[in-house]
Each structure stands twice: as C-alpha cells, then as structure tokens.
Design a protein around this nucleic acid. Structure first.
Length: 466
DNA sequence: CTATGGCACGGATT
DNA sequence: AATCCGTGCCATAG
C-alpha cells in the first residue's frame, strides 16, 4: 500500500525524546537553520549526496528501485503514496516530472493577483524596477499585504530604501488600492490619500488610522475623543467613514470583521513542509505525499570520523566522543521527526481524502486527540507535528497543516455555497434553517461568526442575486 | 420588531 | 493550564 516505509526507530532515551520534541515543532525553514548550525559546529556530522532516479529525478530509497518509475502504483489509484523528497524538488517542479509542465501553470494559482497588478504598473517602470516589483508582488500574503520587510528586499537587490519605497508606492496605487503595503494601516493610508484627491476626507482620519484607533470598540470612543480633543460624535463619524471607504486587506474586496482575522496574526507561507500532488502531475495517477527534507542529501554520522576516533590522541578522544554521540543523536532525532510526520500524514491523507481532492466542503472534522489515539502517541506529539507546518494541496494552494483540523470549515463552505446561490439575501436566522435542512446544526449566532470569518456581508448589505 | 454585532461564559481541545 | 470555539444574552441599528 504505501510505497516507501521509513524504518522504525527503536531506542528512546530522555535526551532523544526531548530533542525530538523540539525538532518536531519546527517548520522546514527552521529545521534547515538548525541543521546548518549543527553541521557547522559538529565535525562528526556530514551530508552525503543522494542517488537520484535518472528518469524522474526523485530521490531513491536506500535500497530497491525508484518507487515512482519502476513501480508505478496505478493498481491502487485511491491509495496515496507517501515518500520523502528533498526540497529541491519544490524549486524545480518541472524538472522533477516526466511531462513538461509549463512553469507558469505551476504558479498560476498564486500569481493571479501579482500579474494583474504588475500589468498595470509595468509601463511606468524601468526594466530593473520591474524585476523588483515582480519580486515584491510574489511576496504578498493572501490579504494582499507584503509578507517580507521592505529592507530585506532592498538589501537583496542592493538598492537604497528610497528607491524601494518609490516602487512600493507605485504598487500600492495600483488596482486593489493598497496592495503591497507593509501593514493594514499603510494600506488604508494610501487609500485615504487617493480618495482625498476626489472628495474631502474627515479631519484627523490620517492620525487615527496611524495610531490604530479606528479598531477600538465604541465604548472606548470617549477615551479617543479626549486624546484628540474632539467631540465623541466626530470620532464616531471618522470611524464610520473609515469603515465604509477603506479596506485594510486590499486583496479582499470587502470588509471582514476587523478583529476576527487579527491583522498581526496573518501567516506567511513560503515553503510548504509537505506537498500533495498527483504523480507526475497527472490526475490519472495516484496521489503522492512528499514530506520535504531540508537537506539535499542524507544527513549522517561521518564514518571516517568514527574510524579515526580510535587512533586519536587520548586527550581529544573525550571531546570527539561527545561530538559523535551528539551527532548520532541528532540524526536519530531528525529521523524520528520524519517518521512521526509520515505516520501522521498517512492517516491524515486517507481520512481527508475527499477534502484534498474535492475541496473545503468535504472536510471531515477531526481532532488531534483522536488521531493521537489511533497512532498511539501522545496528544502533544500530534500538536507539535502539526504546528508551524504548511502543506501544498494538489490544486497548488498552500495552507497551514492545522487547517486539516478545522472543525467548521465544511459548514462554512456550505454556508458560502448557500449564500452564493440565494436569490434574495437570507438573514442569519434563515441561513440556520437552510443549513439544518442540509444536516448541519448551528446556532444563529454562529452563522454570524462564520460569515465574518469568510468575509461575507450581512444580509441587508448583500446584493440580491439574479 | 427584526437582524446583527459585542461580550462573556463554559465546555472542548491542545 | 492555556487557548479556542460555539453559543446565549443583551444592546443597538435599521
């Protein structure tokens, strides 16, 4: 069934356990840093090159043939293949497949907004500026905000911050006004600026947004009013204006609940830890689950180091022995990490099969606790394994692995469907009934929350559908 | 009076 | 022990 079983790891010392747990919570980027650090200070560790399958370029298991080419598992199309892969495959997706997949197709899902924006501003940019703009635009999060510090980009391209800011400003003025801003405030300020060219804007609006005071709830208005020495009514009006005219998340075309998707908690996803895709990008093939390795080769204890330790000076032997122990422990811990994640994914992928292939609507709620029981590991192990990881689905969307445990995603997605299909806008209470008819039992108040989560407007603000 | 958002409580989950 | 999530109650807007 599964093509590539990782070897079970037997002995568990407390030190082993502690380090494994620490490593388990790390994302792939953090793990890479950790490995680099260990590699630098421990001479007993080394990385050896992998053997690759000449046809499909996938990493070969230590023994046997390539699981992809030599033994295609088309006999079991419903069962996922789980195997490990070096992260290189992520960067060279087309090189890693048998068929030629055009590169832009690979990133099509992610690049819709970026290319749209770039097309608008391209004419007014020089060639090198265009490259920088493209770089910035590929680092937008799902809300349309910049996911990297501007300085980082400036250093990367060796250009002064002033140039960087100029380019960013041009991006910000492009269609979803405010895209590429570093923060929600920045996005709103640029919107405010553009609006002010057409009509008048309330006094002090700029200051209030800069200080983030528009986020305050109503009972704090008196405090704010005092702060600016203005009547409460005016504060109220300004906040109302801000709410009606500005959009803190340029990529969303509407206001969600401002406090619900806490702006600073917006996650940035760059490198997925796990990739689920069809073998060789062909939907006819079974699914493959790649758990990305942070290294290009295999991390191992340097065998030369092992032998030479016998002939070493007596004084140094102690130190070397320590290094050796540390190294082998580290390698074991990392293997343990993969082992855990792999076992987790095997269960998860089978369980959420429909969700992975067919979308949000088919998400089956599952708790970490129940999974831990099935795998007979501690709950916290699952929690750690899921934490800080992202996963790329066959449709190229990258979501946090924790999304697999979303309790309400299926209901929310059905809710969205109902609203999309409704003729007249339905009130929350009516939506409760519609959902109940489809077998989902939810309270009225909860509908409101789900709407907010999905950024859907309340009934009286929605347009009647044709 | 109806629809919706805010706050807070309690149970489940981590 | 800390956090998350669904829900009930109440205030407020329309």
């Amino acid at each position: 069934m599964f093509q590539y079983q990782y070897t079970e790891i037997k002995p568990l010392t407390t030190a082993h356990l502690a380090q494994t747990m620490a490593l388990l919570t790390l994302s792939i980027d953090e793990l890479q840093q950790e490995i680099d650090a260990q590699l630098a200070k421990n001479p007993a560790l080394e990385i050896i090159e992998e053997r690759r399958c000449p046809a499909c370029h996938k990493r070969l298991p230590p023994k046997g043939k390539c699981p992809i080419c030599s033994k295609p598992s088309t006999e079991h199309p419903d069962e996922p293949v789980v195997f490990l892969s070096p992260r290189e495959d992520f960067y060279q997706p087309s090189g890693a497949t048998h068929q030629d997949v055009p590169e832009d197709q690979f990133s099509a899902a992610v690049e819709e907004l970026p290319t749209y924006v770039l097309r608008q501003i391209a004419p007014e940019l020089k060639e090198n500026e265009r490259i920088i703009a493209a770089y910035l635009l590929t680092h937008l999060d799902e809300d349309g905000l910049l996911s990297i510090p501007l300085i980082e980009a400036a250093q990367y391209f060796h250009v002064p911050m002033s140039t960087m800011k100029e380019i960013q400003t041009k991006i910000k003025k492009a269609d979803p006004i405010g895209v590429g801003s570093c923060s929600t405030q920045e996005a709103m300020l640029i919107q405010l600026e553009l609006i002010s060219e057409q009509k008048s804007i309330p006094e002090y609006a700029t200051e209030i947004i800069t200080n983030g005071d528009h986020l305050a709830s109503k009972r704090h208005y008196p405090d704010i009013a005092k702060k600016y020495n203005l009547p409460v009514k005016q504060i109220h009006d300004i906040v109302k204006f801000v709410g009606e005219n500005l959009n803190p998340f340029p990529a969303r075309s509407y206001w969600g609940n401002v406090r619900q998707p806490a702006p600073e908690a917006v996650q940035v996803y760059r490198q997925p830890d796990i990739i689920i895709s069809y073998l060789n990008e062909d939907p006819e093939n079974p699914l493959s689950v790649e758990i990305i390795l942070p290294t290009f080769g295999t991390l191992q204890v340097n065998p030369l180091f092992k032998t030479s330790i016998k002939e070493a000076d007596q004084e140094k032997v102690d130190d070397w022995k320590k290094d050796l122990d540390k190294a082998s422990l580290f390698v074991k811990c990392i293997q343990q990490r993969y082992n855990t994640i792999q076992r987790l994914m095997q269960k998860l992928v089978v369980y959420q099969h429909d969700f992975i292939l067919l979308g949000d609507k088919y998400m089956k709620p599952i708790t970490r606790a129940s999974l831990s029981e099935e795998l007979s590991v501690h709950e916290s192990t699952i929690s750690r394994a899921v934490a800080n990881k992202t996963i790329q689905l066959p449709n190229k969307k990258i979501i946090p692995l924790a999304g697999f445990f979303d309790r309400s995603l299926n209901v929310r997605s059905v809710l969205k469907e109902i609203i999309e299909q409704e003729k007249k806008p339905l009130s929350d209470a009516k939506l409760v009934q519609s959902l109940q008819a489809r077998g989902y039992k939810v309270a009225r108040r909860t509908i409101a929350k789900y709407r907010a989560m999905e950024g859907l407007l309340p009934a009286h603000l929605r347009q009647p559908n044709a």
